[in-house]
């Protein structure tokens, strides 16, 4: 157990190092001069050659590749991710200032998906090949097929423009949260529902469920207590991959709804070629992803004693 943990931690650090190097490499060889872009954006005028030189000197952008890379790694080990070329604020602060909004959106979407997807998945599994099961299958297939950005725009059209129930942009109240949350949740709900169904179907065919039935336990107790407990174990593992989906979805949903989170800032930084922000954000996002998957692995071992004992022998 401990060995497994250490192994995972080491590989996580390794992944992070490679990630930072790759993102650095990519940005270093990118076409276009960031100094030019940034100065033009700040002053609204085309910069002179001297201005560009000065800007590059001040931000150490004219040093050789290896020097810049090592410099970056050095700062990284001291918790400094550099300064945004656009705003002049430290990248880490830019991230933490916006993370709250994204976290709120992601948690709300995840909660909605679990609340809707889990019971429906279980219910579909108890009546396989019934009309309900077929309808759910079609609905979930449609759910994973709709592009998020388009769904967001269509919801906006329907609930903001036509019905006037909800605001379509902005952030602050619960009413602002509803549309982005639904948009982000649809795809996750659809895949969760199908995964729960498959997992539940497998468990319901096991011997101990037959025993429970033979014992005369009520169907409700068998399904929701005995079967669900075991069916949820594999579901935990996909929650890890869903975090990647959430992060990717957040980028698009935030851009569509002008939600002031990390996703929108990331896209804006890409447009502006804000190198330090792109590097820093990719690294932090990779770190979150790796960390969550590490936690999921640990949770899995904790939840499923079979894995624990196999690991020991």
């Amino acid at each position: 157990m401990r060995r497994l943990l250490i192994q995972r931690l080491v590989s996580a650090v390794f992944v992070m190092l490679i990630a930072s190097f790759l993102s650095f490499l990519l940005l270093f060889y990118a076409p276009g001069n960031p100094a030019e872009t940034i100065i033009r954006q700040q002053s609204g005028l085309d910069p002179t050659y001297a201005e560009i030189e000065l800007f590059m000197k001040r931000h150490d952008l004219n040093r050789p590749f290896l020097v810049q890379c090592l410099q970056w790694l050095y700062l990284l080990t001291h918790g400094k991710l550099g300064v945004s070329l656009r705003t002049g604020e430290p990248v880490l602060e830019e991230f933490t200032a916006r993370f709250g909004a994204t976290f709120q959106l992601a948690v709300a979407a995840m909660a909605l998906s679990v609340i809707i997807g889990l019971p429906i998945g279980v219910f579909a599994a108890t009546k396989p090949n019934s009309l309900f099961d077929h309808i759910i299958r079609v609905v979930s297939l449609a759910g994973v097929s709709i592009p998020e950005f388009w769904l967001g725009l269509m919801l906006m059209l329907c609930f903001s423009l036509a019905l006037g129930w909800l605001p379509c942009f902005g952030h602050g109240t619960v009413r602002h949260l509803v549309l982005p949350m639904i948009t982000l949740a649809v795809g996750i709900t659809a895949s969760l529902m199908r995964f729960v169904r498959t997992s539940m179907l497998e468990v319901l065919n096991l011997d101990y469920i037959k025993t429970a039935k033979a014992k005369g336990l009520r169907e409700v107790v068998i399904v929701w207590k005995h079967a669900l407990k075991n069916a949820l174990i594999p579901v935990v593992t996909i929650l890890g991959t869903q975090v990647g989906h959430l992060l990717a979805g957040a980028v698009i949903v935030e851009t569509v709804f002008s939600w002031p989170g990390i996703g929108k800032f990331f896209v804006d930084s890409i447009y502006a070629r804000d190198y330090p922000v792109i590097q820093g954000f990719v690294l932090i996002i990779a770190a979150i992803y790796v960390l969550v998957n590490l936690l999921v692995d640990i949770l899995y071992v904790y939840l499923d004693p079979r894995v624990r004992y196999e690991g020991r022998s």
Binding site: A19, L247, A248, F266, V267, I270, I285, A286
Partner: peptide, 9 residues
Amino acid sequence: AFPNIILAL
């Protein structure tokens, strides 16, 4: 270990 759409972006 990379969220792929982020890297693609």
